[in-house]
């Protein structure tokens, strides 16, 4: 699975109005009066703007946990990776998106795909390997009409 990396511009604020009562799937409420707060997705999804980067997911090795080809990934480089985290790793010259699995002995490390068609990758001393960043969210586009 390949990744395209982007630097995140988190400086902008795109405030969307939030209807305080929630969204009614019935008669429209006189909503204007209740629109009081604003949501900024940069603030909701990005805890550390300085260390957050974006990547585009290319491929299907993580499809079983709902990360698909074309998803936008939000990556935070400041988070210390732990067992079970979804990470962007860099191994032998390639970026890859996988789940991290650490053996209990603390010695072996695995990069686990979430798709039966792919094999886990054992990371050994011989590999040139770094965890580039921890994935915090994936954003999926549903509306595909042009």
């Amino acid at each position: 699975m390949d990744l395209l990396l982007f630097s995140a511009d988190t400086s902008s604020e795109t405030s969307l109005l939030l209807a305080d009562e929630g969204v009614h799937a019935g008669f429209p409420s006189p909503a204007q009066d209740y629109m009081c707060n604003a949501i900024d997705l940069n603030k909701e999804l990005i805890r550390h703007p300085e260390t957050t980067f974006y990547a585009r997911c290319v491929g299907d090795s993580m499809k079983d946990i709902g990360i698909d080809n074309g998803d936008l990934l939000i990556i935070d480089k400041s988070i210390e990776p732990q067992d079970g985290d979804i990470v962007v790793a860099y191994i032998d010259g390639n970026f890859t998106l996988k789940r991290i699995k650490m053996e209990h002995d603390g010695k072996s490390l695995w990069l686990m795909p979430e798709n039966d068609e792919y094999k886990p990758i054992k990371v050994t001393e011989e590999n040139s390997f770094i965890v580039w960043g921890v994935v915090t969210h994936n954003i999926k586009t549903q509306f595909r009409r042009q």
Binding site: H48, E50, T51, K77, S78, W132
Partner: peptide
């Protein structure tokens, strides 16, 4: 460490 890890 914060800068080097966080930004690369």
């Amino acid at each position: 460490k914060t800068v080097t890890q966080g930004t690369g």
